[in-house]
């Protein structure tokens, strides 16, 4: 092209190639570098705890941990205390999430309804639940409502988490429902659907993909908050951990283990939901 005759006439500096980003940026953005940074940080934390523990003369007993996860006895394979605690935690979370979801849906629909009383009820409940600390709510459920209604500690814990998260989940559901275009409502109503049918067949199926990511966030939040019911001694993971420590004095090992178990569960849920979201968005 034009450049050709020019380069014949006078030597040109070589055309710059597509400019590569500077070396440093390429380095800091590479996967290997991220893994390295991650490893270094972990090693630093590990070393700091070891050094600190050594300075206080801490007696590490990691070899004692596996038997709290599982053990083989004369009766055969048995789950350890921590695993049983995890099972209880999961039970707690599943039941309280079920309650939270159903109650949250009711609150959301009440807020969106034409019923003035329903709206007010929903708003009052919501503000009440959102504005007191979860810890206080746990005490309220166990020490006040518990004796009144005859709940044991597990029931009180499940109901407390369920009701608290219902408030948060209702906001997510409401936002998802409101995000559906008004025309969808009108089309549904114009073919004679009742409000309930419109929700069920038209609105919710469309709002669902929008609700999934924030709902996952709440599930993970719920799992983490479930540790709080250890203050009323429900035998879940955190409570078990605390009890084990008072028996064995292995506080470092056990708290590390408990933290890792929570981490594993929440990460697993995130991964599953990410996969689910991909499928939902493919279908939509």
């Amino acid at each position: 092209m034009a450049g050709l005759s020019k380069s014949l006439a006078a030597p040109q500096p070589p055309a710059p190639e597509l400019r590569r980003p500077p070396f440093l940026r390429r380095l800091t953005r590479s996967t290997g570098f991220s893994i390295l940074v991650y490893a270094v940080v972990l090693a630093a934390i590990g070393y700091a705890s070891y050094a600190g523990a050594a300075r206080m003369g801490y007696n590490w007993q990691w070899y004692n941990i596996p038997r709290y996860l599982y053990r083989f006895t004369d009766d055969g394979f048995q789950l350890g205390e921590l695993t049983l605690g995890l099972v209880m935690s999961i039970y707690l979370c599943v039941t309280s999430f079920a309650i939270a979801f159903v109650l949250g849906l009711v609150i959301a629909l009440l807020r969106l309804s034409d019923l003035i009383i329903g709206k007010w009820l929903a708003v009052c409940l919501l503000e009440f639940l959102r504005n007191i600390p979860l810890l206080v709510l746990v005490y309220l459920f166990y020490y006040v409502l518990g004796p009144i209604f005859g709940w044991d500690r597990l029931t009180a814990g499940i109901l407390c988490l369920g009701v608290f998260y219902a408030a948060l989940i209702s906001e997510i559901l409401r936002a998802g429902i409101l995000a559906t275009p008004k025309g969808q409502w009108e089309a549904a109503r114009s073919i004679g659907m009742t409000r309930g049918q419109a929700y069920r067949y038209i609105i919710i199926p469309q709002a669902w993909p929008l609700m999934l990511p924030p709902l996952t966030g709440e599930v993970i939040q719920l799992i983490k908050s479930s540790a709080i019911v250890s203050v009323i001694a429900v035998a879940e993971l955190t409570t078990i951990g605390r009890n084990l420590i008072s028996d064995t004095y292995m506080s470092f090992e056990i708290w590390f283990t408990v933290a890792l178990i929570y981490l594993a569960v929440t990460l697993a849920i995130s991964l599953v939901v990410t996969a689910l979201e991909k499928r939902v968005s493919h279908n939509a």
Binding site: G183, Q184, E186, A187, S190, I202, P205, Q206, A284
Partner: peptide
Amino acid sequence: FQQFNLFPH
């Protein structure tokens, strides 16, 4: 309707 309002799902 002007905007069709078909059910996209």
